[in-house]
Amino acid sequence: MTTTPPALAINNLRKRYGDVEAVKGVSFTIDKGDFFGFIGPNGAGKTTTIKSIVGLLNFTGTIKVFGHDVITDYREARRRIGLSPQEFNFDRFLTVEEELSYTAGYYGIPRREAQRRITQLLKRFKLTDKRTKRTENLSGGMKRRAIIARALIHEPDILILDEPTAGLDVELRRELWTELSRINKAGTTIILTTHYIEEVEMLCNKVGIINKGKLIAFDEKERIMEELGNETLVLHTAKPIPKRILDGVDAYIEVEGKRTRFTGKGMKQKAKALILRVEKSTPIEEIDMQRESLENIFVRMTTEGTAHPEGKS
């Protein structure tokens, strides 16, 4: 029986720039078909990790892409990776079509097949009428679409997108989300770094949070949100809840007149008892249950010395 190796396996990745250790022993595994959101503050080590995967950094540790070591078996590993880097790295003298055509060639795709794929990708990324334009003359949004099209020219098994939506307007961002979901549903593993946490919450099934070079959270998105996230029970009452009722409740409590918020872990399970307790003294007009957003969890986990469950200080 053969087992399929993971799409990406990083083991004890370390990277030092002079005296600064940018990545401090990061290990994680991404399975085939995952849509992985890799988030962290600026300088946390996201781009360093990505550059290590694609061979643009010297590092210690091991990285395997579908079982192929990115150092010792770099050609096989790279055949499977499609990269959309954070900073555009086009040949400024080439047109969009030439850029895609040369990249197809580097991957060893014969000319006729390359032409077929280029036509498809240009159409899919709405660049057909820009195909003879030099990449340096494209707008930011078009450049982003062109670089993602370029990353897909060899139909990679794993697509790595480093901040693909930075600088895009809302409409373009939404279009890109739709396209990325489609690519992932078709079987391509995706690794996405972004500053828009809502993107990760919406698109990804797996999340990793990196801070100061260390992976501080890594799991299925739902589990992260369940285990690390708080829940908030909001009660709208006919009059303010008396203090004696609130005393001793195991939650972070915020009172705003007739609206009271109870925040804590497992609030869903505690809600019934709490509602019964409040109702004894004060009629309840409306009940609302809120789940902490991934963005809040992220901010809370990456902000030092924050005890407040909602990340406010």
Partner: peptide, 9 residues
């Protein structure tokens, strides 16, 4: 662009 080429197989 050299970075791009250096990520090619």
């Amino acid at each position: 662009y050299l970075e791009h080429v250096l990520t090619m197989p």
